[in-house]
């Protein structure tokens, strides 16, 4: 079953004759449990694609279908709720809340949805990501790799079915990247998540089940497994 699907997805910025075609007719299908890497140079439209998949931005034309639901027609409020329950995000710059400690950051999205925290599950994630001793630290006391691991834990804590990662290792040195990447892959396998990861780094992309290449807003070669 395709958990994520786009149909001739388009995103244009600006007005004629100066339109920028960030996405120009993207048809994509991602299966449940698949780990897909989207590779492309900067300005190729890969981040725009990820934002569309996660309901962070609305398309100019075309459809985004998540779990059989067309999200391109949802209102902002519906989208917010949709994201909170279905999608986990990991960004290049971590986006942690600086005044909350590690644990509070991780459980924040659960509490935002008005749910009680599944303590056992969250502890399990914290343990897996090697953050057990850092629970009460503030983000600015952590290294880049540790901060990204907190962001991964936060993304996993709500048990989302889809994990979207935008250059998750973009700010990390190559060794730390390998470490964080391994963790991302291991957890997504363990919690049966579909993962879409954006990167410009071939070394990072090789762990994916499938690599999709995007150039000038179009997919130009998809290598199957």
């Amino acid at each position: 079953m395709a958990v994520l699907k786009t149909e001739s997805l388009k995103k244009y910025y600006g007005k004629d004759p100066n339109t920028v075609k960030a996405l120009d007719g993207v048809d994509l299908e991602i299966q449940e449990g698949e780990f897909v890497a989207v590779v492309g140079t900067s300005g190729s439209g890969k981040s725009t694609l990820l934002h569309m998949l996660g309901g962070l931005d609305t398309p100019t034309d075309g459809k985004v279908i998540v779990g059989g639901k067309d999200i391109s027609g949802m209102t902002d409020e519906q989208l917010t709720i949709f994201r909170r329950r279905n999608v986990g995000f990991v960004f290049q710059n971590y986006n942690l809340v600086p005044i909350l400690n590690v644990y509070e950051n991780i459980v924040l999205p659960i509490e935002l949805d008005g749910n009680t925290v599944d303590k056992g599950f969250v502890e399990n994630i914290i343990e897996t990501l090697g953050l057990a001793e850092k629970k009460t630290n503030l983000p600015n006391n952590l290294s880049g790799g540790q901060q990204q691991r907190v962001a991964i834990a936060r993304a996993l804590a709500t048990k989302p079915s889809i994990l979207l990662a935008d250059e998750p290792t973009g700010n990390l040195d190559s060794k730390t990247s390998q470490d964080v990447l391994g963790v991302l892959k291991m957890t997504s396998t363990r919690f049966h998540q579909t993962m879409v990861m954006i990167t410009h780094n071939e070394q990072i992309a090789q762990l994916a089940d499938r690599v999709i290449r995007i150039e000038d807003g179009k997919i130009f070669a998809a290598k199957g497994r």
């Binding site: 691991r149 071939e202 994916a208 290598k223």
Partner: peptide
């Protein structure tokens, strides 16, 4: 989190598009 065991050879090599 991990420990890395690396093995390097100086042979034919593999092009980046084949890494996956």
């Amino acid at each position: 989190i991990y420990t890395k065991i690396s093995v390097t050879d100086y042979g034919v090599g593999i092009a980046p598009d084949e890494w996956n």
